[in-house]
Design a protein around this nucleic acid. Structure first.
Lengths: 198, 198
DNA sequence: TCATTAAGTGGTACGCGTTCTATCTATTGG
DNA sequence: CCAATAGATAGAACGCGTACCACTTAATGA
């Protein structure tokens, strides 16, 4: 009775392969033609399946887009690493990383929208995004930079979290509330850093 | 020749009246049934006009939603004022305001999405949002609280801007990247305040 | 009254996300 | 080969934002 008759369900490997294929094409489309080109119907055509098949692998469009988050973050942190390689002093390293991070979003507002503003984010997302080890690495990098500047502080995690969300907030405000005369991005980033590195 | 023949174009008053009517119904719908109920077709039915007529008064859906920003902000700052009325010490007042602000968004994620995550925010928005004097008042309130805590600082505006965008960033991260184990909202807000009030 | 001009209506159309149903196709145990 | 089961498909449907169109309805100066 345990081995039921009939076709067996997809195993985890097959599931992941199919999802990777779809998400991979989604990334290609996004890079080539921007955010708006990533539509279910279009994506299905590219990947060579029926639109509805995608819904067998993902819960919806937003669920697919989560798979692209890691790639966007990787790109941002590549730029950060490039800056870090030129810098020595802990405080300068933290400052360079922060400013590069903010500037990345301001220079790639499409990517920012993809990660932080894509549609229905009300429901709880399970660990597609954070299970990526590289993403953890990125967060750890920030945490390490913070720790290098304030080695004695007990609340390194809170500081790092505040820094990350603060930087994202600066980008968000500059992008969405564009008609308000915000202070310059670098100046706000510096002010933000002042508390993290105290 | 100057007074051309034919029906004259709507004057500014008429323009604004029509826009207010549409935006007013949009606000009602939004409050009663949430963000997703504010659709052009639905809105046109409520307001008693054809869907396309709305496009004669607004550039698109996002353009309408801007009109609701001020109302949402007013609601948030009402709550802040309630807290401020109970608090005396400048530093406590700033802290209460900041935490109330962040908590407001976390308790009203629909409102947060309405203001900061609604659709196409790539284009430059003209001064529908910021021309509201009450909104300016709100920003000034924050600025005043900052100044009360650090009266000698020359960069009050930068500090206030950083605080506002930082708080919004905290809310954004907690709302959108819900599966990451962020530090508690209050803890991050405190960390953020540490630099603003230094 | 009449030509002129702007405002608003109705319909059609495209592509979108998403859901549903009915129908194939593939893979298994018997 | 057969029955059973899961995967994938096509097709229709709903409501959405938005665009284009011909059309009607004001409101005006002459």
């Amino acid at each position: 009775m345990l081995p039921k008759p009939g076709r067996p369900a997809r195993n985890a490997t097959q599931m992941e392969a199919a999802r990777d294929k779809i998400a991979g094409h989604a990334l290609t489309l996004f890079r080539q033609e921007g955010f708006s080109s990533v539509s279910i119907r279009r994506l299905a055509k590219e990947v060579g399946c029926a639109p509805m098949t995608i819904y067998a692998h993902f819960e919806g469009k937003t669920d697919i887009l989560q798979y692209l988050w890691a790639d966007v973050l990787n790109e941002a942190f590549e730029k950060i690493q490039t800056e870090l390689d030129k810098t020595e002093a802990p405080r300068d390293r933290l400052g360079a990383a922060a400013k590069t991070f903010v500037r990345y979003w301001l220079n790639n507002t499409d990517h920012f929208r993809l990660v932080f503003m894509s549609g229905d984010v009300s429901r709880a997302y399970v660990a597609t995004f954070m299970k990526d080890p590289q993403t953890h690495q990125h967060f750890k990098l920030i945490s390490d930079l913070v720790k290098a500047v304030a080695p004695d502080a007990a609340d390194t995690k809170t500081r790092a979290d505040t820094l990350v969300s603060g930087m994202i907030g600066i980008a968000l405000c500059l992008i969405t509330v564009a008609d308000y005369p915000w202070s310059a991005a670098d100046a706000m980033t510096d002010t933000l850093l002042a508390c993290i590195a105290a």
